[in-house]
Design a protein around this nucleic acid. Structure first.
Lengths: 189, 189
DNA sequence: GTCTATAATATGATAGAC
DNA sequence: GTCTATCATATTATAGAC
């Protein structure tokens, strides 16, 4: 992976632009310019714009799956793994303030466009949902695990949205702390 | 207001389409067709597409300001007013599941487009923020009022996002109940 | 594999008749 | 106030040379 082939470079550039400017608002010309190739060369690697979108979504899923695996490997407990999830809000703070959550913003855009790839974007949510559910199950939360997973996902999405609306205020850090405190009460209860 | 003039009809149609399909994805042709006028007639009422967007945002702010005033008038307590705010998730459940929150989705789109009207879209958030802050102040929450207002706004946004991602699941009702329970604990604490 | 045209279409916007 | 052209531009996509 991360081969320096033109195809991989296209996916990397598209991934970035789709996040920073949105999918519809990113043209082939924009991506081609960022990669440093001509628009025509584009179509040798991808027949349609939707194919690039699919490739971007697949890569995002793969990257996040690896990240989630690593969190499980490096954490001492499921609670610590979930805390890692909450802390990505802080790790990506600057980007979230500027562009929101990449998962939520792409899904929201594709859903509004009624785009065929909406399902693929939802899969990224699913990845986190299922991973979080497993961690809560390991914490002994049983039937409540899925509810807790969705709750935490929703809280994170809301924090990202408001952090973008009020990027200069210390809102994101405060809410991340509240989420970590919430995690403690869940662990105790 | 709600005059049946062509101008008002255009704003109404644009408001709906911007919500259901997004701003960029709604063309003049789409709006004109919904209103039942020609594309050319359009430019007699609005010189640019951005002017329509501004008019839509202004109307949304006015409508919501009236709604918030009405909630204060019909509620017995500030807590009851805030509960009304939470219940709009349930009142608009079907639309939220299909199109998300109109406030959040328009703001997110304009922010990603780096559109000049992003500030106007943020004003809708501000309207709710300030209103909620006042209610919490009336509940005696003092300096914590703004933090509580932003927290509730973020929670609502997150619920709307996940409700759109999982529209067939009973997620929204459950989270609305949790928010009402949260409001009780805030009132007691 | 990469390039330079070029086609085909959609869209925001304008001009002018009625 | 509303209409029918029409323009100008951007964008996805294709054809074919190198």
């Amino acid at each position: 992976m991360a081969r320096n082939s033109t195809r991989e470079n296209i996916i990397t550039a598209a991934d970035r632009l789709f996040y920073e400017r949105g999918f519809e608002n990113s043209s082939f010309a924009d991506v081609a310019q960022l990669v440093g190739i001509s628009r025509g060369n584009f179509y040798y690697h991808f027949k349609t714009k939707d194919e690039i979108l699919d490739a971007v979504i697949r890569r995002r899923i793969e990257e996040r799956a690896r990240m989630l695996d690593a969190w499980v490997d490096t954490s001492q407990s499921p609670k610590e793994s979930i805390a890692q999830f909450i802390r990505i809000l802080l790790m990506n703070e600057e980007k979230i303030r500027r562009y929101g959550c990449p998962v939520g913003s792409l899904f929201a855009e594709l859903a509004k466009l009624n785009h065929p790839a909406e399902g693929g974007a939802r899969e990224v949510f699913n990845l986190f949902r299922i991973w979080l559910r497993r961690r809560f199950e390991e914490m002994g939360k049983g039937q409540a695990s899925d509810r807790l997973a969705l709750h935490l996902l929703a809280r994170s999405q809301g924090v990202a949205m408001l952090a973008r609306a009020y990027p200069t205020e210390p809102f994101l850090e405060r809410e991340a702390e509240e989420l970590l405190a919430w995690l403690e009460t869940v662990a105790e209860g």
